[in-house]
Design a protein around this nucleic acid. Structure first.
Lengths: 202, 202
DNA sequence: ACCTGAACACCGTTCAAGT
DNA sequence: ACCTGAACACCGTTCAAGT
């Protein structure tokens, strides 16, 4: 019964199924993932090192998918390219954001992306002790918009009368175009602010 | 044996213990919380509606503690006041951020804070369909800096050589003052951008 | 009204046993 | 090398039983 001639699992299969499971909205977990793959939970441990490793695997796989090649160019092109990529990733897979937020990043590919961003900022003249903060801001901006795209009517759920919030939430058709426009404006603001900050430093 | 003459639990006791537990870094959960309170897990359900309700209770209690009175003033004062308050909250309790992020906000006090911010933006002339996005950005900015303050050397953990990131992480003494300065600069950038955006709309 | 203790369905993880 | 099945310690939640 055990061990069919052709393998049932692989790291890639697990990663893809994990992403699908998270996207579906069902509660994410090792057991549910095994169920989805038609396999016993313990089988997964032949390929992967537990739940956290699976989550890191999802980050890695999505990173590779949304950044098939390194973002290059001037520092501002790297910033906008990276933020736009992250935003598409989070917009397409908003439900993985709560899963990965706050978890340590180890995947070499993803580390490489942040490293190139940090290098570009250093090369552009940003003082060392501010680079990490700026990278974090850039990341937070993308995550924030990803979460916003997810479903704003689930972020705030007023149980008492409100002056403005309740009306805005019900009014918000929440079209992708409108959110896209707001995102681009915010990104321009971000880059303009960084540019200003750089000029003052030189 | 059960039911001592004086109650062992109350909503406030549970909330405070939950915050302490989360801050301690031990894995957060109903069982661990009950253990900390010297009580059976099922006892908690006489006062509180389960794990998610406890987390929302933590948000409520911390919100009341860090915003003892409503933030008032012009829209920009409300923005800066709210962001600074949120940032102090997240900086003092960084480990609750992963717990609350992405979870629906229902607490009337916290809803009220966001409602006042939204109202101020509407009054200042921000178009309805952009207010929610801006509120989300403001929130993401505070959360991002809260996470950043937590422990940056745990966010990125390079396993391969890096050009810049590894050096910055080891160099970053990560003093509170330096992070404070970066936060204030970023906040000024944020408000300046919003102000510019408002002028163009009028 | 408030707490216990038993029970339930479910976690994530380990490991011996099979091929 | 890869999968199963049993086992483990642990979840969150419900509920009858006690005072």
């Amino acid at each position: 019964m055990p061990r069919p001639r052709v393998n049932l699992l692989s790291v890639d299969l697990i990663a893809d199924a994990a992403i699908e499971l998270a996207d579906s909205g069902d509660t994410f977990g090792v057991n549910a993932l095994a169920r989805k793959l038609g396999v016993t939970p313990s089988s997964l441990y032949n390929h992967v090192d537990g739940k956290d490793a699976i989550i890191e695997l999802m980050r890695s796989r999505l990173g590779a998918r949304y950044f098939p090649e390194p973002v290059t160019g001037d520092w501002d092109e790297i910033v906008t390219g990276t933020v736009r990529g992250l935003r598409r990733l989070y917009a397409d897979h908003p439900l993985i954001v709560p899963l990965i937020v706050g978890k340590t990043i180890t995947d070499p590919g993803v580390i490489g992306s942040y490293d190139r961003l940090a290098t570009a900022l250093v090369d552009a003249g940003v003082p060392d002790d501010e680079v990490l903060a700026i990278v974090a801001i850039v990341d937070a901006y993308a995550i924030g918009f990803g979460l916003d795209l997810a479903s704003p009517d689930e972020i705030w759920q007023p149980t008492v009368p409100t002056a403005t919030l309740g009306r805005l939430i019900t009014d918000a058709a929440h079209g992708a175009e409108r959110s896209d426009a707001a995102f681009e404006i915010g990104l321009e603001m971000l880059v303009a602010s960084l540019r200003l900050r750089l000029q003052n430093r030189r």
